[in-house]
């Protein structure tokens, strides 16, 4: 591929992980559409123990904060709010690359209960990259006012990942969210996302290519997801993946705890 490293223009995993991963036990990503109350969830979980850039990064900047649950330290990384992970905008690439390359111990996807269908689009995309997902159906207080009911148990069954309803502004459901995140991060619970089923042509193409992808890449990156990206011909992403694969061989992509992990723990 003719793209240079520079031209992918994105933060490298290492840069993104300058988050001093040494003094925390788990790294948790927080994804979601814009306007889902994601920042409220973030603020409610981390309180004032957070680093933001020069601006309270509503959409543009990285924010991170810590919380402690049952004597484990969790670092929460607030990803940019996006509708999708497919369009290659800067925000979407940051979010996608973080989930894909930094491999957080769990990813919380915040959904707006009043607009579930649109929000599920992002959740399904995240679940194609990683299985370690906890879905947080937020703004259920708004939904109640609008007389909208969301059946969280059924949603969890359909998606194959833990689901919790929350109203972050009044702290409702957040203790349960923290518990579910801890279950997934510590591998006590291993979510099995239901794959999206595509059109017949596409599924056939996936079936042909996926075994080859498995052979070449191993389990480092979800093979079905990578197969889809190959069929899509998303060269910018593929370049980023190539960089990631090769960076991982010459230098530890992530410092500290992560290195031990990849050395066979």
């Amino acid at each position: 591929m003719g793209l240079t490293y520079q031209s992918t223009g994105q933060l490298t995993t290492r840069e993104m992980f300058d988050a001093k991963s040494d003094n925390c036990d788990y790294i948790i990503a927080l994804a979601g559409n814009p306007n889902t109350g994601k920042s409220t969830v973030f603020n409610a979980l981390t309180g004032l123990r957070q680093h933001t850039g020069n601006w309270p990064g509503k959409t543009v900047q990285r924010a991170e904060g810590n919380y402690i649950y049952k004597s484990h330290r969790y670092r929460l990384i607030d990803l940019p709010g996006t509708y999708s992970l497919l369009s290659n905008s800067a925000d979407e690439e940051v979010a996608r690359d973080f989930i894909c390359f930094a491999r957080p111990d769990a990813t919380i996807v915040v959904l707006d209960a009043t607009c579930l269908e649109r929000n599920l689009n992002l959740a399904l995309q995240v679940m194609e990259i990683t299985n370690k997902v906890v879905v947080c159906v937020n703004l259920i207080d708004e939904a109640r006012r609008k007389k909208i009911q969301v059946d969280a148990a059924k949603l969890s069954e359909r998606l194959g990942v833990p689901v919790v309803s929350t109203a972050a502004r009044s702290n409702e459901g957040l203790p349960r969210l923290i518990e579910l995140v801890s279950d997934v991060a510590s591998k006590r619970v291993c979510p099995k996302p239901q794959p999206v089923s595509y059109s017949k042509d596409l599924e056939e193409a996936i079936a042909r290519l996926e075994p080859r992808v498995r052979d070449v890449i191993g389990k480092d990156i979800n093979p079905r997801w990578l197969t889809l990206r190959l069929l899509d011909g998303d060269t910018r992403l593929l370049q980023a993946i190539e960089n990631h694969l090769n960076a991982g061989r010459t230098a530890p992509v992530v410092h500290g705890r992560r290195r031990d992990y990849s050395n066979g723990a």
Partner: peptide, 11 residues
């Protein structure tokens, strides 16, 4: 191109 991606991604 990009416009198409955007519009599709919007649903």
């Amino acid at each position: 191109g990009l416009t198409r991606r955007r519009l599709l991604d919007l649903g």
